[in-house]
Amino acid sequence: MTDELLVVRAQLGERAALAELVLRWRTPVWTYVRRMLDAERADDVAQEIWLAVVRGLPRLREPDRFAPWLFTIARRSITDRLRAEYAEAEAFADVAAVSDDPAEATVERAELTAGLSALPVLEREVLVLFYLEDLSVEECAQVCRVPAGTIKSRLSRARRLLREQLTEKGWQP
């Protein structure tokens, strides 16, 4: 069943469709949040996101655009949490350190993670949305509320920074 059909059924008030939507998107949402915050806060923020999704779902006018709408809400929740905890500038500098997990630095995948978590938050975010969540450039632009050209330049810069990070750690492509 497509997301669009699930959203329409949920908007009609079918509880089972809403539960299926939560089940289907729980991990992608959590993954995105986890890339921006530590595990403890990721659970709470993911729950806040689902609360906002349920409250806003009846007003979603384009059920076929569920994924970008969902990640827009997720992004807003993460930003609100960061703003509440730090001054904005400090937050963007600090989240990288928060997501670092030295225990994971032993396998190649974890090295990628370490490189990713060391990126500035804007570049990390766009990598996560584009590569992990499979959103298109246009959808990333909608979620981040910036032009598509900005997303492309952020992606390019993010790839370069990630490559530098991984090369510094001795990773060979």
Binding site: R26, T27, W30, T31, Y32, R34, R35, A39, A42, D43, A46, S99, D101, E104, R109, A110, L112, T113, L116, S117, L132
Partner: peptide
């Protein structure tokens, strides 16, 4: 990536 190896708790 890290979150790919992790699961929501």
């Amino acid at each position: 990536m890290a979150a790919m190896t992790e699961e929501p708790r």
